[in-house]
Amino acid sequence: MAQTRGLQVTDLTVQIGGLKAVSGLNLELYPGELVGLIGPNGAGKTTVFNALTGFCAPCAGRVVFDTKDLTNKPPHVVAKHRLARTFQNIRLFKELSVLDNLKIAYHSNFKYSILSGILRSGQYHSQEKKANEFALEILELVGLADRAQDQAGTLSYGGQRKLEIARALVMKPKLLLLDEPAAGMNPFETAELVDLIYKVKKDFDLTVFLIEHDMDLVMNVCERLYVLDYGVLIGQGSVQEVRTNHKVIQAYLGEELLCQS
């Protein structure tokens, strides 16, 4: 077993209802990298994220993160290994306050027992205080500090995307998986998002793996890319390499366009 840190995915195959959504996927992320996962609609990108974070069980292959085997581990165990994610269709706790959203994500860092929670022990008070402070710190970072007491559902679309990233950051992750973070954002919000990604990556010493359709964003921020089509890896490498990869162009533009040009 390779004892390198980071994420190693070997021969990952996921079947959904008799259909191979991902087959024989190999990929590797080194600590501190910012890597993109792209591909046409329905290529299996989100399925890869789901398999990495324990939301669907791969039928073959292995997922190793930080030298620990995470294959077939349930989501909460994956999360405890400091692998955080966001969702394509934003899954905030919309009825709860912004602050509570973050404090729920702080869960694994709370060490007091159910009993000391009920008895309101000193541990309870000190840890709740710490959680509050940390959550506010993160909110400050993403620029939502003044909305801490508001209901998460009342934030703007861009604000909700930011909050979801903030919520993932509260878990103190080592690897952050972002599923279409810029979807539905206007150019201004997207620019803000890019800054945010750079900032948190540096401040938290993060590895970032992101799915995105906004090619400007992808080409701008990603150091390396993996390209998926019909569940199969059809290209990888630097932005330049992927841009000139024949198979990738074909997948994106289709056969005819290629012939015409």
Partner: peptide
């Protein structure tokens, strides 16, 4: 007191969105 502790919040998060709760380590 249970509800207003980390453990109670974990329960509430299940009510709100079980999938998201799992992804947050609950």
């Amino acid at each position: 007191n249970f509800i207003y502790s980390a453990h109670g919040r974990a329960c509430i998060s299940i009510r709100e969105d079980e999938t998201a709760a799992g992804s947050l380590g609950i």
